[in-house]
Structures are given as structure tokens and as C-alpha cells.
Computed example of a mutant assay.
Amino acid sequence: MTPVTVQAGDGPVILGLPHCGTYVPDAIWDTLNETGRQLADTDWHIDRLYDGLLEGVTTVRANAHRYVIDVNRDPNGVSLYPGQNTTTLVPLTDFDGRPIWNTAPDSDAIADRLARFHAPYHAALQTEIDRVRARHGVAILYDCHSIRSHIPFLFDGTLPDFNIGTNNGTTCSPAIGAATTRICAQAAPFSHVVNGRFKGGWTTRHYAVPGVESIQMELAQSTYLAAESPPWRYDASKADRLRPYLAEILHTLADLAPTLAHSHGGTT
């Protein structure tokens, strides 16, 4: 299987899909334990949830599972959240803190996975960012994530439904953050937070350069799954209540592109 799948659109918005892939090469699968083989920390069906919401959108999807290597982590292994429980470049545990390997990868194995999976994903993402920015004067990177709403190992209590991450306002213009927050705040009965437990991963932070607006959306999986447990079934009725708000966010960000391009000195 190819490490990344790209669907190139002609609009200004790019959807990053780093964690919905479930591919695990056989040699790596053989080293996972029973817990790891459940692949419980997948962003289940997040690609389906966003499918068709915005015409002309570009999508960049990692196909390998995050247990193979997490493409939303610093390739140098620097922690996103120092002092807090989190998972690493190649996770050693699941989100509940349980070991996932019979044989954990050594440094050579990690280097191999960086080359085979992490680097191609980011090469593809950078190519699409450059292409979209050249066309529109700005690229808007919207990184799509989801997670169980109750994970005591990672956070206390219940996660809000919409978790907007801009690394405390450093990864995008105020207009992007404000527009996204306004839509989420009006999306009854869903709850939201800005830069709460999830402030934006390595992707959101790494690509936040002039000419690129970058924002992460972490959704509680309770908003669109039948249950946050196997078999992780997509609930179309739940999703249909959520999707209009996601569509409104994406359309609003796309509509902001000409103004943002002007502010970055670009043209449309």
C-alpha cells in the first residue's frame, strides 16, 4: 500500500488526515501484542465524516496506522505536551497507557519507518500546500482528528465535542480562529473549547509559516460513532447532525481566503 493518498482540489483548503489509516505491514503486525492489534486509537471514519463537505478541497491522507509511526509527531521525537501524558513518534502504549508491543521497535526500525511513512506523508502535504498557496496566495490547512471523549490517562473528565487547536493563536490569523470558534459556539447542543487539552499537533505547528493558515480540529468520537468502543461503527444519524457545522466551518474558511491572501501579500 502507498504511504499517502492525495486528492488534489482547486480550492484554498487542505484537509490533513494523519490518523484514519489502518494499514500495518505484516512484519510490524507480528510485533504488536493483543492490545496493539485492536488499533483502538484510530481516528475512526474521520475521512468519511468530512467527505463531500467542501467542493474543491484537497485531502492528504496517511494510510499507515499511527502505531506504525505517528505522522503528527515531531520526527526528532520532541514532545508536543511536555509534562503531560501523550504518545510518542512510535507509540509504546495506547491512549490508556497500556503497552502495545511484544517487541518494541529499536532506533533502526524507527528510522526505517520515518523514511517509509512519515517523510512521504509530509512531502505530499508540503507539495499540496505549495501548489494551493501558489494558486490562491494562501493555503488553509485544516487538520482533521477525533478521539474518545473519556481517556483518563490523557485528560480529566469528558472532552468537549469540538476541540479547536491553534497553539494559543500562533498557527493562524485571528480571523480563522474567530470564525471557527463562532460556528462551534452556535452549534447547539455541541460543546467546544479553544486551545484546551489539544492545542494543535506537530503538523499544525510545523506548517504555520507566512502564507499558510493552520488549524486543528479534534472531535469527540461520541459525536459521530455509535459507541466509542469496538466495532467503532459510524452512526450516520449522529454524523448528519454534525456534518452541517463542519461544512459551515470549511466554507467559511474558504471564503476568507482572498482576504487572508491579501494580508499575506499574495494574490488570487
Rank of each mutant, 00 (worst) to 15 (best):
T103P: 05
A247S: 15
P231S: 08
N163G: 09
S79F: 06
T204I: 09
P75V: 07
V24A: 14
P210L: 03
Y23P: 02
N76A: 07
W232H: 14
A227F: 05
P12R: 04
H150K: 12
P82H: 03
T86R: 09
I129R: 03
V212K: 05
L114R: 15
P12N: 05
L15Q: 13
Y142H: 14
A62L: 05
W29V: 09
A208N: 11
A64P: 05
R241N: 08
E228V: 10
A115S: 09
Y67H: 12
P120H: 01
L141T: 05
H206P: 01
R182V: 09
E248K: 11
T127C: 11
A123R: 11
A187V: 10
T5V: 07
V194Q: 12
G16Q: 11
A220T: 07
W202E: 09
M217T: 12
G137L: 13
R37Y: 14
P210W: 03
G77A: 02
G196K: 06
Y23T: 13
H206Y: 07
P120S: 03
R113D: 06
H206D: 04
Q126M: 04
V132L: 05
Y234P: 01
G97M: 02
G16W: 04
N33K: 13
A40K: 15
H19R: 09
Q38W: 14
T35W: 12
L219D: 01
T223W: 02
R98Q: 14
S229G: 05
D143V: 14
D26Y: 11
Y224D: 00
S229D: 13
E55P: 08
L159M: 15
R205K: 13
L225R: 00
L219W: 01
M217I: 15
D43A: 15
L242N: 01
M1L: 05
N63Y: 08
D240M: 05
S222H: 15
D94G: 07
H262D: 10
R241D: 03
T127R: 15
L159P: 04
D26L: 15
V57P: 02
D240V: 06
G11T: 11
A64M: 10
L260G: 11
T87M: 11
D43P: 13
W29I: 06
P210V: 03
W44D: 01
S237D: 04
S214A: 13
N63T: 11
R148Q: 04
T267S: 14
M1W: 07
R135D: 13
P75D: 04
P105Q: 02
V78M: 03
F198P: 10
V6Y: 05
V13E: 00
H192P: 03
V6F: 08
A185P: 07
L242W: 00
Y67T: 03
V90F: 09
W232A: 00
A188E: 11
R205G: 06
I69G: 03
L242F: 00
T267M: 09
Y50P: 04
A124E: 08
L17K: 08
Y207D: 00
H45T: 00
L39R: 13
